[in-house]
């Protein structure tokens, strides 16, 4: 690891200024992913701007929306009474991720900035278009058991990336119609959560739509009628502290047995948290039964394709959708 320049920011503006002027500078908050990547030589920013002292930790009920400061810790959000009451799906997803210690360090903004856990990305001696553009995708003809089944548009070899986004929290946020507040050199803007992360396209090295120097300051989540019937289902290789093979965030607004509103998103299946709006449409107005859920799962799976080691996801994903919806409705 190079001995980078370290700067401590005292205001969002000074933080942005600190990064803006230097294309290779980066913000550091919890550091739980960035430091890992730096240790393995995957990234080597010569300048880090520490944003931990910025006043961006508050969690507030603003009436129709809940605002979560970007520096709120994962554990703080997961344990917050407001979140437990109004957004239990988010709390569940947070607690399904990482470990208690990491949740005590990782911030909400940092969680969004997590990079993929694809092993080819993580080993500088192996090909990876995300890490080393043009070097090829190691996973596509390699060990791809953990990899994507959605969002795989045909692209030339030098752009191929079948990595998945690793976050659990982001799957819940994608389902819950969150928006991301961003401050940057060009002013402040708001990004719908589902537009925050991106598909690899011809730029697999880019995980999201942030511009250089832009700082996530907060998340805003609309209050909703989905709190009573929601479930985050995570299927993994061990019972805790493992990345998802498949995860599903499901939330329903039920009137009697009839579905009024539905939110559905998956993790472990695409380069970004995978919102399933078409499947949601299938659910609306229908009774909350297994048959309905199966129909939605079938719609959800349209366009999925698998590789040598992840064909199981074509079966596991719809099964997980049905299971998550069943538990949400229950």
């Amino acid at each position: 690891m190079i001995n980078f320049q370290y700067l401590r920011a005292s205001s969002p503006k000074s933080a942005i200024d600190g990064v803006r002027t230097d294309l290779s500078a980066q913000f550091i908050a919890g550091g739980t992913n960035l430091i890992d990547l730096m240790k393995r030589g995957i990234t080597a920013p010569p300048k880090l701007v520490d944003i931990n002292n910025l006043p961006l930790r508050d969690i507030a009920d603003e009436g129709k929306t809940i605002r979560i400061g970007a520096l709120a810790l994962n554990s703080t959000v997961a344990d917050h009474s407001l979140i437990l009451k109004k957004l239990p799906l988010l709390a569940q997803a947070l607690n399904a991720g990482a470990s208690a210690q990491i949740r005590n360090m990782a911030t909400v903004g940092g969680n969004m900035m997590q990079r993929t856990r694809c092993p080819y990305f993580y080993d500088p001696s192996l090909p990876c278009n995300k890490r080393a553009p043009g070097s090829g995708c190691g996973a596509v003809a390699g060990i791809n058991r953990m990899h994507a089944i959605f969002g795989l548009e045909p692209v030339p070899d030098q752009h191929v990336c079948i990595a998945v986004h690793p976050s659990d929290m982001c799957v819940a946020l994608a389902a819950l119609d969150a928006t991301v507040e961003v401050w940057g050199p060009g002013g402040n803007r708001t990004i719908p959560f589902t537009g925050f992360h991106r598909l690899p396209g011809s730029n697999p090295q880019k995980d999201n739509t942030l511009q250089h120097g832009e700082l996530i300051t907060a998340l805003r989540l609309p209050d909703n009628a989905l709190a009573t019937h929601s479930h985050y289902l995570k299927i993994r290789d061990r019972a805790s502290y493992a990345f998802a093979l498949i995860s599903v965030a499901a939330a329903l607004d039920l009137k009697g047995k009839t579905i009024q509103q539905a939110r559905l998103a998956m993790g472990g299946v695409a380069h970004k948290p995978w919102r399933l709006t078409e499947a949601e449409q299938v659910l609306i107005g229908k009774p909350a039964t297994e048959a309905t859920f199966r129909e939605a799962a079938q719609v959800a799976m349209r366009g999925a394709r698998a590789f040598e080691h992840n064909t199981y996801k074509l079966k596991l994903a719809p099964a997980a959708i049905v299971e998550a919806l069943t538990r949400a409705a229950g």
Binding site: P119, Y120, D123, S125, L126, G138, A141, G142, I143
Partner: peptide, 9 residues
């Protein structure tokens, strides 16, 4: 990954 003869996990 036997193409590289290298552990991936």
């Amino acid at each position: 990954d036997h193409r590289f003869g290298r552990y991936v996990n």
